[in-house]
Design a protein around this nucleic acid. Structure first.
Lengths: 222, 222
DNA sequence: GTCTATAGCCTGATAGAC
DNA sequence: GTCTATCAGGCTATAGAC
């Protein structure tokens, strides 16, 4: 005998599941948002789940329904940061003329995100948290970003805007030193200064110009 | 009445004081040496005085006879690191032809020290320890280093090897981005790779070359 | 999914005997 | 200058009631 009157219909259960899933996502979002606040105020390595719980207004054990460990929170933060910067890079690059202009626009957006999200950026560019190593899954968007930059470099070479050398491992490493260096100096020396006012962040266009001149095709130099 | 037979002579007391001072210095040195080991193994932010005491073979309270707090240990480490890198820079620069060659030699030594002393270098270049800000006194040698680099830049300009722009704030900032960027990428991505094998540290001569070309006097570019 | 309660760790730092 | 003893607090994580 089927007790169909006690079994909720799909129409009844589906919205409830969706609501629950949405509510859960919102809570996860809130945890991560507060975690970023704590990291910014106390330092990336000083993230404490108890402090996050305190600010949200729940007890620490409740957070374990959403994340199995403190490392899992760091992992989600890493992934989220990498997704954000990838998104910014792609949006900016897509809005510009393909080639060096797209590259410059993407790198500029990249640097701006880093300066404005120092706590998250430290997690991506430095290794400030003893014992934490991002999972391969969290690394995904970061890998995509590197691959996007490679593509933009290759595109600039194809268009004759840069020498072939720019798209080699050396060119990529030089570019990452320039971007990572500007961010690092900014984050270490003047973390609270706005991007447009920073002594180092303001150099990003200059550094890009240096990169482009260095790898300019023969005969193109002034 | 002077009880001179109970008062030790200067000849008796002075060597004892000297011995005591030397012994004290040795203990301080050992504490700092072990602290660097712990930082390298556990991360710069994970330095624990208990762990240092454990490795030395004493109880934690004993360390407080040498340092008033954990922050004081970090401060001494910062100062010591800055002194070391200043010394390396000066020695290398002094052994080379004044001007861009001395600059290149100094920067090379600088980068090599950073790669070989990652834990200490992180303390100098990043802000990995929540709540720790170096004292003005610990900053001293770091300020001297910046001033030395400025002098070398000015010297290269005087000799006509670089444009005047190289010795401005922009030139200094660009140079520090290049050095700091190479170190940061190395420390974050391949901290255990030797300087000469590192993907980023190996770029230091290339980056210096880029700097020199960028600020080469008019008409000197190829 | 929230809570209470708690285990089981760790830490920095101090007081005072020897 | 070393030790024992201890304070006072933090933390992550788990068990189990509701």
């Amino acid at each position: 005998m089927v007790r169909h009157e006690t079994v909720p219909s799909l129409a009844e259960v589906a919205p409830s599941l969706a609501r629950r899933a949405r509510r859960r996502t919102e809570t996860v979002d809130e945890i991560l948002r507060i975690a970023v606040d704590v990291m910014r105020e106390e330092g990336a390595a000083a993230l404490s789940l108890s402090e996050v719980a305190r600010r949200i207004g729940v007890r620490p054990p409740s957070l374990y329904k959403y994340f199995p460990s403190r490392a899992a929170v760091y992992d989600a933060l890493f992934r989220r940061g990498a997704e954000q910067v990838l998104d910014r890079f792609r949006t900016a690059a897509a809005a510009a003329e393909p080639g060096v202009e797209a590259l410059a626009a993407g790198v500029e957006a990249f640097g701006r995100w880093g300066a404005e999200n120092g706590a998250l950026a430290q997690l991506l560019f430095w290794r400030p948290v003893p014992g934490f190593v991002p999972s391969a899954e969290a690394y995904g968007p970061a890998v995509d970003l590197v691959s996007d930059i490679e593509k933009q470099l290759a595109s600039a070479v194809e268009r004759g805007q840069l020498r072939a050398e720019a798209a080699t491992d050396e060119g990529q490493a030089v570019l990452s030193v320039l971007i990572g260096g500007a961010f690092s100096q900014h984050a270490a020396n003047e973390p609270d200064v706005a991007y447009d006012e920073g002594r180092f962040t303001r150099l990003v266009p200059v550094l890009l110009d240096i990169f482009v001149r260095t790898y300019a095709p023969e005969g193109d130099r002034p």
